[in-house]
Each structure stands twice: as structure tokens, then as C-alpha cells.
Design a protein around this nucleic acid. Structure first.
Lengths: 345, 345
DNA sequence: CTGAAAGCGCTTACAG
DNA sequence: CTGAAAGCGCTTACAG
């Protein structure tokens, strides 16, 4: 015996529901999209049929009609590092609350072929919109390739909005200023800066805020000390570049700070007695690190949520969409900073 | 003047390409899906038209016809913690190589409403298949709700495959055994275990391997010390549960180990002189931690890639699909372990 | 409040 | 090697 409703192994479709409920396909569609329009009696019958069949609307078909999927695409240079993964989590959470799916596409490098293939992948789906994690140049390049018809926003830092898209961003320039002023307030003559990927845009805001704070206080502005992203690279960079006259070190982020502290320890320099160290981000480990890390707290979850909301208001709202939302950082003073030896402020 | 090809603001479609190239829609489709079938001359014309128009096939339409999107769904309990985010990265990388998109859906809790809504979200798209990060019970519950028609595989640990799906998994039971034996070999009378979420399934394999190793060596098997996932919880748990007679501590993962070491330090107990500590995972920070952390290296990237490959061979291959692939861990000895005070082996 | 019909952008037998 | 036509599962004017 053949079951009437079964078309091979396909999941039940709207036609199956209509047949079982004894109504037209149009009515089933209305129950799904604008229930008020359907009489209470029919609505109940349709809902019961949906339940009985375990029917779920096929989003691909919906997308074909509407030209838009219930899905936002995330374009990012990385998925695992703290700031990236936490921002993605914020986006995912906000999207889920709106019943939207999130797709992830990584842009591997600035190689045009990588840019191109990431953009192709994103555009292969009729997404509702795109959120770019514009923390560095790769994503800016990819965002620039998006057609203007595709709604797009960026989650970024102060100085990394090369795409010019509407954005939410961490005011990391302010964060750097807070960190630097904290160290100067402790009595350090000046502050050195270990910056990842300098001089790429990733740390522009931080570098600028740091240098501005030094200038305003009339402190000497030392050359930037370059490092890579991960703790081991930071360790190597610190071994190479952090001289013995450094008494205060402001680091690109917490992981870099931890790598640097490993190097300082190897050099026999104590933190904070000989050198004060400040991180950036306030990762979960910074408070169990020894000494507990003074750092700048960043709310990446909120960045993700805010950016998603921005995209959403661009698409549905239309009217007064803020073109930029700023998220403030906060200084968290712990054990890795102290006045310099031989007297502070 | 109206441009012929423009249907409102829609992106160019296959019909636009066909018109420009002076061929049928069928021919354009063939150039895309089975180029051999089209004469070289026409193929060239079609490709030129595609290029000129910037045409990209609409995956939603393709999905509607084929019943399958070029997209795999990831079902996970978390997106930010080390093992999770690294595994997701492995999946994303493998998928991108196959020109497939990855969607992320988080199962918030074991609450049936959360399970249900995560499953609904996943099934709303005609995905090629689903990869569940079956590291704990939430995802097992969600995977169990998937209809049998949806191809699904799991990335898991030794003891967390409650779904019974084909899987790739970390042999964390072996990892725990290696860690425990290392500590016994150093001369410790026994080893204590700080386990996250004990006795949920997350750490079953680890707990079992650890206890087996103790039993085989005739060492006393102490009660499990429970902790939460993050470093601060681990710190609190260690302050509460790690007594002064503990000389060797095997921890659920590196972050738990770091939290525990913070607690030991506060208690005035030195690592490794007074207490040896072993972590699990080998996160990037474990080598810059002080003392550098002895741990068990896990290749979560490979886990992600392998699981994706498994899904793929289930879908395309069909024949001899391995129902389980095991990924071996490796002990990495660093500075946090040493013989006990008063003589080792 | 309800339904028949057109159409979203593709793929795929089928016929030549 | 090529094309006309049906159909994937929905939504949305349009007509009643």
C-alpha cells in the first residue's frame, strides 16, 4: 500500500498539510504567515494537521519566493580567538532569538582568490544580510566585494572600519588611553606598547589612544614593539624587544600579555615589582593568572548582539538607523601593575 | 530606459545569462553542472556571459530542486570554549574546501523547549547534513530528535556518544590513562581528579580511564572532586575540595588546571614541588603558563575535519563508511609535574 | 474569510 | 550537442 502523502522520502510539504486538513495550500500558508486572516475553526484544523504530520516549512522554497533566507552570514578572519569567537556567539544568540540561522565563512588571507571564494560562498545563499567582523584588513577587503544590494554591517574596532559600512564598534582607542593613563598615574615615566601585527589596522585605535595619552602627559613616545597574535609569538617578541629599561608594558591583548610575562620571568624581571603589565580584553583566564592581570574589559558578546540588531533595523526598520554604535571599555585593575621601583607618583 | 535584464533589484539569474549568451536556460545550467556535455564554443560564450553579468547561481533554488542545500549544520552546546571553537573551525575549513557553507546552532540547555527550537532551526533549512558536537548531553538530546532521513554524524569523546550516530571521537579515556600513569610513574601514591560537571557524561571517558589506570597499578581510587567549566569555578572548587594530602592532581582540562593552580598558590602550595598538576587539551596558553603545564594534547581541528569527512562519505560514498574514527591524544610533559616531596619512584 | 493560479530560479528527464 | 517543459515547495496578488 502506498501512503498518499509520501513523495519518496521527502519531508511532508505544505500540500500534504492542505490535503489532510481539507483546505487549500493558500490557507495553510496563511496560517503560517498571517494567522489572523484565517477563521478560527480552519486555523485549528490546519495546526492539528501540521502537528500530526510534523510539518516544517521549507526555508529554501520561502527564500526562493522572497529572495531572502532567514539566515545571516558572518564573514570573519578567524573563529577561535577570544574576541572573534565571543562576538560570533553574541551574533548567534541574537539571531537565534529571531529564529534566524547564522552561517560562518572564514576569509583565509588577503589573497584575492581567498577573498573571492569567501564572497562567492556568502553570496551563494540568498542571505538576509551579512555581518563582517571587521577587526582586520582581510574582512574589509571581502566586505568591499559585496554588492550594494546585500545589506551588510560591520563589528569593528575604532580604527578598522575601512569598508565604511554601518557598524558597532569597541572604542579600543579609549581603552588604550585608560590603560596608559593608569600606568602613568602609577608613576611610570613612560609606557611601552607590544602591538600585534603592527602596523596593520588591527591595533590602530589602540596604538593611537596609547600614543595620544603619552603625548598629552608629556611623556616620551617610544617606538612600537611588534609581535604576532599568539602567546608564544608574544613571548618571543618580548624576549627580543623588551629592554631592561622598560618599566611599564601595555599589551595588544591578554594572550600577548601572558606571553610577555612568560618572557619577563625568563629574563628574571618580576611583575609588577620590576615591570607593570596591562592586557586587553579581560579573558576568563586573566583573573587566575599570576599575578592577576590588570586589563581592559571588552564586551564582545554585546558587540555581536548590537551589530546583529543594527543589521536587523537596517532591513526592517529603515528609518533612523544609527550608522555607528560605540561600546565603551573599562579598566580592570588587578595585580600586574604597581608603581615603578624607586618611587611612584 | 529600462534595462532588459533587470528584474527590480534582484541579482542576475540564469535566464539573464541565457539571453545574453543566446542559448537556452538548460544549456547554461549544463555549463554549470556538467560542462563536458556542452560544446566548447557555446561553453565559452556562456562563461563569458556569466562573467560579464557577475552571475552567481541561487543556492536556494538549487536546494529546492535537489532537496539539499550546500550547507552543513553544526549543533553544539557552546561556541566559545577551546575544544568547541577549535572543532568548529576544523569543520568550517573542511566544508569550505568543498564549497559548502556551515551554519551554527547552539542548544542552550536540556530544557525541551530549547532542544526543540534548536532542532526546528536546523531543520528549517534543507541541509546536506548535520554535525553534532556531542561532548555533552544537550547535543545528544537534540541529535535524537533529528528525523532519520537527515544525514547526521557526531564529533565526540569516548563516553559521550549517547546518540549512537556514526562518529569521530577523541580517545580521552586513553588520554586520562596517560596522564594518570605519568603521575604514578613519578612516584605519587595516588592521583586525584578534578572533573567538570561530574557526573554528567562530558568527562566519563576521562574519569573511567583515570580510575582504570589507578586500579591497574593497585593505587587507591579517591572520590572525584567536582568543578564547573571555567577557571574561576575551578579555582573555587580547588579551594574547597583539594586537601593538603593531595600530591598529584589530574584536571578535566587546561583551564580547570589553571584555576586549580591559582587556588594551590593561594593555599601556599607550590607546583610542582608540593603538588603536581596535569591538564587536558594543550591550549595555546599552557606553554606560557608558569610553571608550564603538563597536559594531554588533543587535536580538535582534526576532529572537526574528520567528522566532516565522515558525513561526506555517508552522503556521497555510501559503501564502506567507518562508523567510528578514533583520534589519539598525546601526553606533553612540561614543568607542572615532578616526583612527590620526600622521594619519587 | 477562502482558493486558483502565477511565479520565485533553478535542474532534469524527455525528445530531437 | 541542444532546448521546451515540468516541477521543486512555497508566497502573493487577484478574484470572489
Amino acid at each position: 500500500v502506498r501512503v498518499a502523502a509520501s513523495r519518496k522520502n521527502r519531508a511532508p510539504g505544505i500540500a500534504d498539510v492542505a490535503r489532510l486538513a481539507g483546505v487549500s495550500i493558500t490557507t495553510v500558508s496563511r496560517v503560517l504567515n498571517d494567522p489572523e486572516q484565517v477563521s478560527e475553526r480552519r486555523r485549528a484544523v490546519v495546526l492539528a494537521s501540521i502537528e500530526q504530520l510534523g510539518y516544517r516549512p521549507n526555508e529554501a522554497a520561502r527564500a526562493l519566493v522572497s529572495g531572502r533566507q532567514k539566515m545571516v552570514g558572518v564573514l570573519t578572519g578567524n573563529t577561535t580567538r577570544y574576541g572573534f569567537s565571543t562576538t560570533i556567539h553574541g551574533i548567534e544568540e541574537a539571531a537565534r532569538r529571531r529564529n534566524m540561522l547564522v552561517s560562518i565563512t572564514v576569509v583565509e588571507s588577503e589573497d584575492p582568490a581567498h577573498i573571492r571564494s569567501a564572497v562567492d560562498l556568502v553570496l551563494s545563499q540568498p542571505l538576509t544580510g551579512v555581518v563582517g567582523l571587521e577587526f582586520d584588513r582581510v574582512v574589509s577587503l571581502a566586505l568591499a566585494q559585496l554588492p550594494p544590494t546585500m545589506p551588510a554591517v560591520a563589528a569593528s574596532l575604532t580604527g578598522t572600519n575601512a569598508s565604511g559600512l554601518p557598524r558597532a564598534y569597541i572604542d579600543d582607542e579609549l581603552g588604550a588611553r585608560l590603560a596608559t593613563e593608569h600606568l602613568l598615574d602609577l608613576g611610570h615615566a613612560t609606557v611601552h606598547h607590544l602591538s600585534a601585527d603592527y602596523p596593520t589596522p588591527s591595533g590602530h585605535g589602540r596604538t593611537y589612544g596609547y600614543q595620544q595619552a603619552l603625548r598629552e602627559r608629556g611623556a616620551r613616545v617610544p617606538p612600537i614593539l611588534p609581535t604576532g597574535w599568539n602567546p608564544l609569538e608574544a613571548r618571543r617578541a618580548a624576549l627580543e624587544h623588551v629592554d631592561d629599561d622598560v618599566t611599564a608594558l601595555f599589551c595588544f591583548n591578554d594572550e600577548v600579555a601572558m606571553g610577555a610575562m612568560s618572557a619577563l620571568r625568563e629574563r628574571g624581571r618580576r611583575v609588577p615589582e620590576d615591570v607593570s603589565v596591562v592586557g586587553f580584553d579581560d579573558t576568563p583566564l586573566s583573573s587566575v593568572w599570576h599575578p592577576a592581570l590588570t586589563t581592559v574589559r571588552i564586551d564582545f558578546e554585546a558587540l555581536g548582539r548590537t551589530t546583529f540588531d543594527l543589521l536587523r533595523s537596517m532591513i526592517v526598520g529603515g528609518d533612523d538607523v544609527a550608522s555607528a554604535t560605540e561600546l565603551p571599555p573599562a579598566l580592570v585593575v588587578r595585580g600586574s601593575t604597581a608603581p615603578p621601583r624607586g618611587g611612584g607618583a
